[in-house]
Amino acid sequence: MLSKEKIARINELANRSKTTGLTKKEVEEQKKLRAEYVKTFRTSFKEQLHSVKVVDEKGQDVTPKKLKDAKKGNKGFQH
């Protein structure tokens, strides 16, 4: 998870880009921070998916094979 300071900086840069504009240095900083945010988000989302277990009405595990393989570290939800 990103620190509160980095998230605040992302928001600050976004607001400034809409009002006064950003310098080239700030545009690069914004790109870097956004990339870090997206990477962190994707990692967190994959971890959430790996904790999912799909169960039908009868209580049987019907988790897709691709997800089961990803949980075991095999191929699967990796990009």
Rank of each mutant, 00 (worst) to 15 (best):
49 L>E: 04
35 A>C: 13
25 K>I: 09
48 Q>S: 10
46 K>F: 04
67 L>F: 02
42 R>K: 15
43 T>C: 04
49 L>P: 01
59 G>N: 10
47 E>W: 02
38 V>R: 07
47 E>R: 06
43 T>S: 11
50 H>M: 12
49 L>D: 02
58 K>V: 02
41 F>M: 13
67 L>W: 01
44 S>P: 00
30 Q>D: 03
56 D>Y: 05
58 K>G: 00
33 L>W: 05
30 Q>N: 05
31 K>R: 14
32 K>R: 13
40 T>C: 10
61 D>P: 00
62 V>N: 02
40 T>F: 15
23 T>G: 01
35 A>G: 14
54 V>H: 15
40 T>N: 11
63 T>D: 15
39 K>D: 09
60 Q>N: 10
36 E>H: 08
54 V>M: 13
55 V>E: 11
54 V>D: 11
42 R>S: 13
46 K>G: 00
25 K>R: 15
63 T>S: 15
51 S>G: 12
39 K>A: 09
56 D>H: 09
31 K>I: 03
61 D>L: 05
58 K>M: 05
60 Q>P: 00
52 V>A: 15
27 V>H: 12
24 K>Q: 09
66 K>V: 11
27 V>T: 11
57 E>A: 07
61 D>A: 08
28 E>R: 10
62 V>R: 12
41 F>D: 11
33 L>Q: 02
57 E>F: 06
50 H>V: 05
52 V>H: 13
40 T>K: 14
52 V>I: 10
28 E>D: 11
48 Q>P: 01
51 S>D: 13
60 Q>Y: 07
50 H>L: 12
38 V>W: 09
55 V>S: 13
29 E>A: 08
31 K>N: 09
41 F>L: 13
37 Y>P: 00
49 L>T: 05
55 V>P: 03
59 G>D: 04
59 G>C: 09
35 A>F: 14
53 K>W: 03
24 K>C: 07
53 K>Q: 14
32 K>L: 08
65 K>F: 08
51 S>T: 15
24 K>T: 04
47 E>Y: 03
51 S>N: 06
37 Y>C: 00
34 R>N: 03
55 V>G: 15
45 F>H: 09
28 E>C: 05
26 E>V: 03
23 T>C: 00
42 R>V: 07
48 Q>I: 08
46 K>C: 03
65 K>D: 07
30 Q>F: 08
56 D>W: 03
67 L>D: 00
34 R>K: 12
28 E>N: 12
50 H>Q: 11
40 T>R: 13
39 K>S: 14
47 E>F: 02
30 Q>H: 06
65 K>R: 05
57 E>G: 02
44 S>W: 02
29 E>M: 05
28 E>M: 06
47 E>K: 07
67 L>P: 04
38 V>K: 12
